[in-house]
């Protein structure tokens, strides 16, 4: 089991957003967390990524408690949660090269950087610096980078942001490919096109405060 949560409470201080969540996500699974704004989808993903502590319960990634300080955890989990920031002096192609460099070794059979860039249309602006890219191009680049680094669990918060329909379909297909490579995906999304293209199982989070 790649990801398991037991009695997970998620929220801020005394404001519980999600209560007693039990999840079991294995290799090949794509899980789409859905629900209205403010129910705690992003907070849940931040907990799974080890960026904030849950209010209660346990999160296990490959059997070990979440700890983003552990290199083993960082080799397992790739995430794209907030708006990404960029090195202003690296082109889109150099960002891709850089991310694969810092995440070495890249195992055989992983996404080939050039092919990945071509599938998400990044090769068209590979030599352009981030300051000259549109919001949609930046989102395509961010998704390419998240997929280019080897991992077993991919966490994505609204990956459809700024993407056109073709982009969302391409991302969905790539998520299927990722799962086929024995990975597991958890994404928060409001986009039925993307959820369908990724073949994701929906997990609707109810609005406890609504």
């Amino acid at each position: 089991m790649i990801l398991r949560t037991e009695g997970l409470d998620v929220g801020y201080r005394d404001r519980v957003l999600i209560r007693g969540l039990r999840l079991a996500v294995d290799a090949g699974d794509v899980l789409a967390v859905t629900g209205p704004n403010g129910v705690g989808k992003s907070t849940l993903l931040r907990c799974l990524a080890g960026l904030i502590r849950p209010l209660g319960g346990r999160i296990l990634v490959q059997g070990a408690p979440v700890d983003e300080r552990s290199p083993a955890f960082r080799r397992t989990v790739a995430s794209l949660l907030d708006t990404s920031a960029w090195y202003p002096n690296l082109t889109a192609g150099e960002h891709l090269e850089f991310v694969q460099l810092v995440n070495r070794p890249v195992p055989a059979g992983w996404f080939e950087a050039g092919a990945l860039a071509a599938r998400l249309g990044v090769s068209r602006f590979a030599s352009v610096l981030p300051g000259q890219l549109s919001s949609g191009q930046r989102q395509r680049l961010a998704l390419t980078l998240a997929l280019a680094r080897p991992s077993r669990l991919l966490l994505l918060d609204e990956p459809e942001r700024h993407l056109d329909e073709a982009g969302r379909t391409a991302v969905g297909a790539l998520l299927r490919d990722y799962a086929r490579r024995a990975g597991a995906v958890v994404l928060a999304s409001h986009d039925p096109t993307l959820i369908a293209a990724a073949g994701a199982q929906p997990l609707d989070v109810p609005d406890w405060h609504g």
């Binding site: 080799r75 460099l101 810092v102 070794p105 195992p107 080897p150």
Partner: peptide, 21 residues
């Protein structure tokens, strides 16, 4: 596809890459 080794990778190549760029 399996992930790589459990230990951390050295930071020196990363720093020199960024310095060079």
């Amino acid at each position: 596809v399996r992930s790589g080794p459990a230990g951390a990778s050295p930071a020196a190549p990363v720093r020199s890459y960024l310095r060079a760029r």
